[in-house]
Structure formats: structure tokens, C-alpha cells
Design a binder for these strands. Structure first.
Length: 446
RNA sequence: GACCCUAUCGUCCAGCGGUUUAGGACACCGCCCUUUCACGGCGGUAACACGGGUUCGAAUCCCGUUAGGGUCGCCA
């Protein structure tokens, strides 16, 4: 039997990183087994669901490269969808739920109380066979002991999550439910519901949660909790995918950097870990940076251009050649595109602002004297390609009897306003003599 | 509070009874390379939560304690 898995997010307005990881695991499992990956939108809470919110999910999955075999084709719940188990928006499946409620009522497994419809929950402990954790026995809790039956349709007529989730998994022929461990305890309810419908429940695999570095739950406000963090800051999707795959799953051979194809080939449920993982942004940045370094020159240019414009740098005020040459000096130097504005901004700004503390440290009277001498040598230069700038600087260093370093540092600070940046000589070539001399003069006047 | 899950370097993972002076990666610290940064190379600091068992032998199996997480809604 072919494997059918699903990602069933609720459109809350953002895609949680844990949700993205759940989607990834489902997707990898489907691709690994040749199964079907289904996207279902759980928009039962009509008040807070908007097309905007649905788009956040669709765009997020597309950015990650997680394509779905069945599901919506757009954020419009009424638009045609892909696959023959639709509709894939719960808001469009009301008749199905009504039919299933009636079925339970007929079997006397559901009844009305206080305007709501309740399910007759079994009083016996339920064993949840979980692929990741093993068999988990879930008895009723103290509270449930008082009143084990739970609401499946609210008094306002809206069916609740536990019910629609089970009905849809049943109707859509879901074979494996891979979801966050936060659903483990509730799975007893789901299993009871499946049995009430007279069918075998799907196989369950509850995957461990992603927590903050301090062990707390990652909530909307935490940096990195929303996928937009990564799209906005210019991470590379393959880096995010690679990192996410390694949280709660392991290829067991100490591999770190793996392509999507390698992940698909290696991914399987037995290697899913059982304990929660803490989210380490630093490692993600490293991994994403690895992929960024491998970008083709053209790909890098396009993305860098967009990132710099996004940071409001006036690229259009410069010749295309200039912009391109400036961007090229940054290749392989940054880990994410959001760093580019501060790294290469000096190419596109009229003035460089120099941190007073750095200036005080770097522009000592002695350094200024050297810088002045260098400035005068620069002024006599005839050619302004990188090697000529280098020759001049080294010649001055030679005259002064010092190494290039003590001359490079103040020059870089004067010209770029930063102590780190692209190759100095390249930068000087791109900036051109006019700006270089002007900026050195300004620094000398500090 | 009750129930459930989990527990190896700061973090992510390897380890699934002896081959382990516990391995890799990120981070951190040195050194080298180098015009800065980054990259790369070399080296280093750093962990089996605790207590009982089982066994000739335990990071690995069992029990307890502790800690963390989850669930107990007419939220999803």
C-alpha cells in the first residue's frame, strides 16, 4: 500500500519553525518512500483565518522547496485543488463532518449535552503504538476520570480539532501521521475516534519538539520561531532545510552537510530521535553560509542585489558595472544576505561613518602621519587597478620600514568605515581615486 | 496536581554490554596561512544528571530520584 502523509497547519498568520520541520519530515518520508504528500489547511476557526494567513503557509513551503502532491493550488479555499481527496480546506468540508457526526450518533457513540455534541470516550487505557517512542499507554487523567466524554461539535455548530483531524485523515486515506510530540497524549482520543468509525488508525510517529536554547518553548515572539526570519534575513533555503532535518533526526553517520537528494535517500522513521532539540541559530548560520559560498556568481549577484536594495541602498545611482564589481568582492565573505548591507554599504554611501572608538584606536598621530604619506603617494598614482593600489601601499610601507598591516588597517577604516570588509585593494579599485582620496582626507581631519 | 515522554561536551548528533584514553559538527581558545574579515590547515578546552541494581564487564539493560518537556478546553 502506498504511503500517504500530510501536513495540516492552521493558518495563524505565521509558519512556526517547528511546523516547518514537521512539514519537512512528512515530505522527506513521502519522497523517500515514493508516497504522497498532502497539504491540508485546518481553517475551522473562521474568525482568525484569512487568505493572507494561508499564503504565509503556501509561500513558506514553496520557499523551502516542499511541494505537495495533493492540496490547495492557491489561498482561495473555494478554488479548485490538486488531488482527488479534496477539498483540502476544512472550511469546505462541513457536509463530511456532519455526516460523520450523524454516523456516531446513529451508533450511539455521540450524544448532545448543553448544546454541544460529545463523544462517548472509552474508559479503558489506550495503547498508542508509536514508531518513534514505542507503545505508550495512556490512561484517563484525573480530570478525564470525572467526565471522559469530550466535545466533538461545539454548541455553535463548529466541529473541534480532534474530530475534524481524525475524519479528514480517515477520508483522505492517511497512512502515517508524523506530527509534534505535543499531540502524543491526545492521540488516545484520536485512536478511540478511529475505532468508533470502525477503521484501523494510521501509524503514528511523534517527533520531538524544537525548543529555545534555554529549553523554553519557542513562541511566536522568539527570534527564529517564524520562518520569515530566514526569508527576511537572506538565509538559503537549502541551508534551513539541511539544518531542520538534523534536528530530531540523524543519518547516524556523522554527516552534517547533506543535499536534499541525500536527505531523501537517507531519511526514515527509525532514525528519528526521541528527545527534544534546542534550536541553535549559530549552527544554522554556519550551514546556510556553507551553501551561500557555493552559489554561482550569477546567483549570488541576483540575490545580493535584491538584499542591498531591500536595505535601501541606492544601487540605481551607480553604473551596473560598478554595482556588479562591488557585489563580486563580497562573494564567499558573508553567511547570509542580511549582512551584506553593513558589509558592502560603503560602496553605495556618500559618506562613511566611523565609530569614534575605532577611530581613536586606529587614527593615532603616528598612524595619521603614515596615512598622510600614503595619501600623497596615492595621489601620484597613474593607474587605479587593484595591483597598483597594492604597489603604492607596499612601497610606502617599505619606505616606512613597516609591514603592510599597520597601513592597511587605518586605510580600510578611513575608506570603508569598518575594520572588516572585502579585499582592500579591490575595494579601492572599485571606489576609484576620487572617493578614496576624499575619504582619507576626511579621516585625517578627525 | 494527575498522566505521558525524555536525559552523552555550551548546542546538534555518533555510540545500541567489552574494539572507548567516549567520536564528529557548530561555538569557543591557541597557532599557521593572510592586506582585514571569511575560508582553509593544525592543535586545544569541554559531556555519559544522580543513586541503586543486573553482569566477569554498563554511556549502553532494569528500578528509583532529580531535572526538562508535553497533555489534561465547547484552542489548534
Amino acid at each position: 500500500m502506498s504511503i500517504r502523509v500530510r501536513f495540516a497547519p492552521s493558518p495563524t498568520g505565521y509558519l512556526h519553525i517547528g511546523g516547518a520541520r514537521t512539514a519537512l519530515f512528512n515530505w522527506l518520508y513521502a519522497r523517500h518512500t515514493g508516497g504522497t504528500f498532502i497539504l491540508r489547511i485546518e481553517d475551522t476557526d473562521e474568525a482568525r483565518n484569512t487568505q493572507e494567513a494561508v499564503n504565509v503557509i503556501l509561500d513558506g513551503l514553496r520557499w523551502l522547496g516542499l511541494d505537495w502532491d495533493e492540496g490547495p493550488t492557491s489561498s482561495d479555499a473555494t478554488a479548485p485543488s490538486k488531488g482527488n481527496h479534496g477539498p483540502y480546506f476544512q472550511s469546505q468540508r462541513k457536509e463530511t463532518y456532519a455526516k460523520r457526526v450523524a454516523e456516531l450518533k446513529t451508533k450511539d457513540l455521540a450524544y448532545e449535552r448543553d448544546g454541544a455534541i460529545r463523544f462517548r470516550m472509552t474508559r479503558d487505557p489506550i495503547v498508542i503504538p508509536d514508531i518513534v517512542v514505542g507503545d505508550v499507554t495512556r490512561p484517563l487523567t484525573d480530570r478525564e476520570e470525572q467526565d471522559p466524554d469530550f466535545v466533538i461539535v461545539r454548541s455553535d455548530g463548529q466541529p473541534v480539532f480532534h474530530f475534524v483531524n481524525v475524519v479528514d485523515d480517515l477520508e483522505m486515506g492517511i497512512t502515517h501521521v508524523l506530527r509534534g510530540e505535543d499531540h502524543l497524549s491526545n492521540t488516545a482520543k484520536h485512536i478511540a475516534l478511529f475505532r468508533a468509525f470502525g477503521v484501523q488508525p494510521p501509524k503514528y510517529a511523534h517527533i520531538p519538539l524544537i525548543l529555545n536554547l534555554d529549553g523554553s518553548k519557542m513562541s511566536k515572539r522568539d527570534r527564529g520561531a517564524s520562518l520569515t526570519t530566514y526569508t527576511d534575513e537572506g538565509f538559503l533555503p537549502q541551508g534551513v532545510v539541511n539544518y531542520l532535518a538534523l534536528l530530531g533526526w540523524s543519518p547516524k553517520n556523522n554527516r552534517e552537510k547533506m543535499s536534499v537528494q541525500e536527505l531523501i535517500a537517507a531519511f526514515d522513521l527509525p532514525q528519528v530521535l526521541r528527545h527534544n532539540a534546542k534550536f541553535d541559530m549559530t549552527k544554522l548560520e554556519w550551514l546556510s553560509g556553507e551553501y551561500l559560498r557555493e552559489l554561482t556568481d550569477d546567483d549570488f549577484r541576483v540575490r545580493a542585489d535584491a538584499a542591498l536594495r531591500h536595505a535601501s541602498l541606492p544601487l540605481d545611482a551607480f553604473p551596473a558595472d560598478y554595482v556588479r564589481a562591488a557585489i563580486d568582492t563580497c562573494k564567499g565573505k558573508v553567511k547570509k544576505f542580511a549582512e551584506l548591507a553593513s558589509y558592502a554599504g560603503f560602496y553605495f554611501r556618500e559618506d562613511v561613518t566611523i565609530d569614534p572608538e575605532l577611530a581613536a584606536k586606529e587614527f593615532t598621530p603616528e598612524a595619521k602621519a603614515r596615512l598622510k604619506k600614503l595619501r600623497d603617494t596615492f595621489a601620484m598614482q597613474r593607474s587605479f587597478v587593484a595591483v597598483e593600489w597594492e604597489k603604492s601601499l607596499k612601497a610606502v610601507a617599505g619606505d616606512l620600514g613597516i609591514k603592510a598591516g599597520p597601513l592597511v588597517h587605518p586605510t580600510r577604516l578611513a575608506v570603508t568605515g569598518s575594520s572588516a570588509g572585502p579585499s582592500l585593494y579591490q575595494s579601492l579599485e572599485i571606489l576609484g581615486p576620487e572617493k578614496v582620496l576624499q575619504r582619507i582626507d576626511r579621516a585625517l581631519a578627525i
